[in-house]
Nucleic acid binder design. Structure first.
Length: 432
DNA sequence: GAGAGCTGTCATTGG
DNA sequence: ACCCAATGACAGCTC
């Protein structure tokens, strides 16, 4: 099964990425870019259209239907073949997802929203819901997995995690994520159960993400806010103010241009396509969600802005409830992710510190034990020496008759003023 | 295949 | 009441 899948995926990759005749997918992609038409309700549709157009033409009707199987058990899909499967084909999901017909999109969205089930109760089951995805490829069974299945997290720099959250998670405080229609957030045309596993797989297949992000960044992913020119304005400043973003026709891509390392790597994409491809980090689940919902500001701001600034930022845009819910979830998850990282770091540092302190105390204890032994030896030696001196003094003492004193009957005692007296033991007992 | 380690996420708690 | 940081617990993934 795995081998068969890898084979199939390999073919798909050829179809998807082998298009450019010059051998440079990036350049071909870029050159093929065309002014964007407003994406309308399908935020991601347009952005992903051009880059994979050829491939999609080839398989638009069956791309998604063809890439994943309905038959493999959900839990099974998490298996070892996931890398081959998702690494090569899943990332293309975001791309291929959009060029397809509205009907297919609706199906995808349904799939997405369906697949947003809460992880905790039954992650497997929730992932398994992907079975409802209308993608059946060439009648071949394959893991069904959403993009979010392949990756999660709202973080800016780190990998991903299992899906959860808001949209799919009723507990997550994102009520709008269920029963999503086409325009709703998490119904974002983006499958929602990407796992860390696949995220890492994407690292091995950066082309997929790269092309997706590329499409989004440079082909008017935020069609509502940006003009088609934005996709071609490679030399533009990366940052964009929210207000300017609101102005139609401005050539800016606010969402991810502003992102940390990821953003910069994307900016370099055209100058050094191959290098940046391999270096690019995959988009996280929340990033892709944000793109799908056309969130008009960068993840970095969503997560890092102080609450006041964040709220002010939100007031600068007219966001739907779903967008607001997503943004707040992204913020919550992003902050918590950083907090968890810091917490673990502190935990490790604490453990390291305690181990170091333990070692130090053990050394100190050993030293004190050794010192005690030395003191005990010295004390024993001094006691012996004192006994010898005592006996010697006694041996020189004589009574009126010139007879020596018996050490058993007398003892020498010293008074505070330094005087020494010979005291009979009988008197000692009486004094006591 | 089991287990350790890593990571993201959620729930909870306290400031 | 709300926000936030910290943290335990859980689950998925990689090695």
């Amino acid at each position: 099964m795995d081998a068969a899948w890898q084979e199939l995926m390999a073919i798909t990759e050829l179809q998807e990425f082998g298009v450019p005749s010059d051998g440079s997918y990036e350049s071909a992609q870029y050159q093929n870019m065309q002014p964007m038409a407003p994406a309308g309700e399908y935020g991601m549709v347009q952005p992903h259209h051009e880059p994979v157009h050829a491939a999609c033409e080839l398989s638009a009707a069956n791309t998604y239907e063809g890439c994943y199987s309905e038959e493999m058990p959900a839990c099974h899909r998490l298996g070892s073949n996931a890398e081959a499967t998702y690494g090569s084909s899943e990332p293309q999901l975001g791309q291929r997802m959009f060029p397809i017909s509205p009907h297919t999109q609706s199906s995808l969205i349904n799939m997405s929203s369906t697949n947003l089930g809460h992880r905790r109760p039954n992650a497997c089951l929730s992932r398994g819901l992907g079975r409802h995805m209308p993608w059946t490829t060439l009648g071949q069974s394959a893991p069904v997995r959403s993009a979010d299945d392949l990756e999660s997290d709202s973080g800016l720099s780190l990998g991903s995690s299992p899906p959860l959250a808001s949209p799919d998670n009723p507990v997550g405080g994102a009520p709008g994520y269920h029963n999503l229609d086409v325009g709703t957030p998490y119904g974002d045309c983006e499958p929602d159960s990407m796992s860390e596993h696949t995220r890492r797989a994407h690292v091995n297949y950066p082309m997929d993400y790269q092309s997706q992000a590329h499409s989004y960044l440079h082909s008017g992913g935020h069609s509502s806010y940006y003009s088609p020119q934005s996709s071609l304005s490679l030399s533009q400043p990366c940052g964009m103010t929210p207000r300017s973003a609101k102005q139609p026709g401005l050539a800016v891509t606010p969402l991810y241009n502003d992102m940390t390392s990821r953003g910069s790597s994307q900016r370099n994409m055209f100058s050094k396509p191959q290098a940046s491809i391999s270096a690019r980090a995959p988009l996280s689940r929340d990033e892709r969600r944000a793109m799908a919902l056309k969130i008009p500001f960068p993840m970095e701001k969503i997560i890092n802005l102080p609450v006041d600034d964040f709220n002010e930022l939100l007031t600068q845009y007219t966001l739907t409830d779903n967008q607001l819910a997503l943004v707040r979830d992204i913020r919550r998850r992003g902050k918590n992710k950083v907090a968890a990282q810091n917490c673990r770091k502190r935990k490790l540092e604490s453990i390291t510190h305690l181990e170091r302190e333990l070692n130090h105390l053990q050394v100190q204890r050993d030293h004190l034990v050794q010192e005690r032994l030395e003191f005990q030896c010295n004390l024993a030696f001094i006691k012996c020496r004192l006994t010898d001196l005592y006996k010697e003094v006694f041996s020189h003492l004589r009574d009126e008759d010139g007879q020596p004193y018996s050490i058993d009957e007398y003892s020498l005692q010293q008074t505070p003023d330094g005087s020494i007296y010979l005291v009979p033991h009988s008197m000692e007992k009486r004094d006591q």
